[in-house]
Design a protein around this nucleic acid. Sequence first.
DNA 1: CTCTCGATGCGCT
DNA 2: GCGCATCGAGAGA
Length: 196
Amino acid sequence: MESDSFELRLSRAFYGRDTVTVARALLGQRLVRVTAGQRLSGLICETEAYRGADDEASHAFRRTPRSAIMFGPPGVAYVYFIYGNHFCLNTVTEDAGCPGAVLIRGIAPQEGLAFMRGQRPGVADVRLADGPGKLCRALNITVALNGADLITDPALFIETGEPVAEHEITAWPRIGVRGGAETRERPWRFVWSRAT
DNA sequence: CTCTCGATGCGCT
DNA sequence: GCGCATCGAGAGA
């Protein structure tokens, strides 16, 4: 898997499905970042689904210049800047015209540990990328990668990882969402228990 | 133009 | 557990 890993990449059809389905299916897959001439990777162990007009917590609840990318074709990276300090990485889902994205909230680091430690000095290995902002810092992901096509981009993509059994997945309410009770209580945060 | 506040993380208590 | 840094997107005027 070292050199050309194109055949291992998840297909556009993988992303072009129901957002909640994709959020679950992304658990166990391998997020890969190529930067400074080296491969960094980790298995996705936590995700959240964000939909469209039916999801008050989603950026795509309203169509704005920033959220327009969520209305576009699937398999594209949506990276945004938050709290003045952090970036968050999402993958666009659903067919073009139907908004949706999955927030990647955590990975279990596999390749490039030395680089990640350099990005986050003093942090224990298991915590290098266990939050949405943390993983972007560890993998050097910024808004420069907003719009990157995960099917073709050499610097950012997702490969088939390890199979995840249904009983290893737990669903929880999403973190930090405001809005009505129904919005807050939706169990659209998925955690791969085996990885943590 | 101005104001509010966030799909967070870190440091301190 | 709690406060705060830090700044751009989005909304209202």
